[in-house]
């Protein structure tokens, strides 16, 4: 589904990603972990089409298409969804408006009929129950005045409504209390399916206690330095990133 080959990305003069390769198939859940500044967020932003990043070399193919040539909206319509680390507050734009406009743009692209107001509301209310969100959120401005946890829930609500083929979750767990974390994880788990791939970008493994990944990759210094199954995440939790990034120093410390 998603094939990243030797991807190099700069921001200004700074090299951030230095040769990332990753293969993701439908139905898989991948966790990309790494210390701060390792390039995790850059990877998810580049995949979603955020400008300000210069792809120096390498390729990203999504369902046979060159993803890097597509605009952010074309990527969304093809089925890429990014849950942002810092969801944007947009006063004056209704949540419900954004959801409906987004969903219908995507449905249109897929050759499906647009939902009418009644069908749409039924759908969105159903998804809101899953995310334990009050219906009053619908008519509020997008993320306007939402707490940190509410914003993250809203991201997963959008994901549940838009039903992407590939969901990228950028630090969705950061700053969540345990209740909110469970709700978010529950929402994500309910969206796991054989057709959908999910990439969890995170610093900590605590989200992985609730969403079990099939693969774990460690990103450091702009490269994937180790890949494994979920036991790798537990190893990281125990030993910290130094174990991988500065193996000699870590060994000395443990000795």
């Amino acid at each position: 589904m998603l094939s990243i080959k030797d991807l190099h990305v700069n921001v200004g003069d700074k090299k951030i990603l230095k040769g990332i390769s990753l293969e993701i198939k439908p139905g898989e859940v991948h966790a990309v972990m790494g210390p701060n500044g390792s390039g995790k967020s850059t990877l998810s932003q580049v995949l979603a089409g955020r400008d300000g990043y210069e792809v120096v070399s390498g390729s990203v193919t999504f369902n046979g298409k060159n993803l890097l040539e597509l605009s952010p909206e074309e990527r969304a319509r093809e089925g890429v969804f990014l849950a942002l680390q810092y969801p944007v507050e947009i006063p004056g734009v209704n949540n419900v408006y954004l959801l409906k406009a987004g969903l219908n743009a995507i449905r249109k692209h897929r050759g499906l009929p647009e939902l009418d107001a009644f069908e749409f509301l039924a759908l969105v209310k159903d998804k809101m129950k899953l995310m334990q969100m009050d219906e009053s959120f619908l008519n509020r401005g997008v993320n306007e005045g939402f707490s940190g946890g509410e914003k993250k829930r809203n991201e997963i609500l959008q994901m549940a409504v838009l039903e992407p083929a590939l969901a990228l979750l950028d630090e969705t767990d950061s700053g969540l209390d345990i209740d909110a974390l469970r709700v978010v994880a529950n929402g994500v788990n309910s969206l796991r399916s054989a057709e959908r791939a999910i990439v969890l970008v995170t610093h900590y493994q605590r989200l992985l206690d609730y969403i079990a990944p099939d693969y774990v990759h460690v990103l450091a210094g702009g490269k994937i330095i180790k890949s494994g199954d979920k036991s790798l995440a537990l190893e990281l939790e125990k030993q910290g990133y130094d174990w991988l990034t500065h193996p000699a120093a870590a060994k000395a410390a443990n000795a």
Partner: peptide
Amino acid sequence: ALFYLRSRGLD
């Protein structure tokens, strides 16, 4: 905000 809206499918 522009990116956010576009990333949800709006042109």
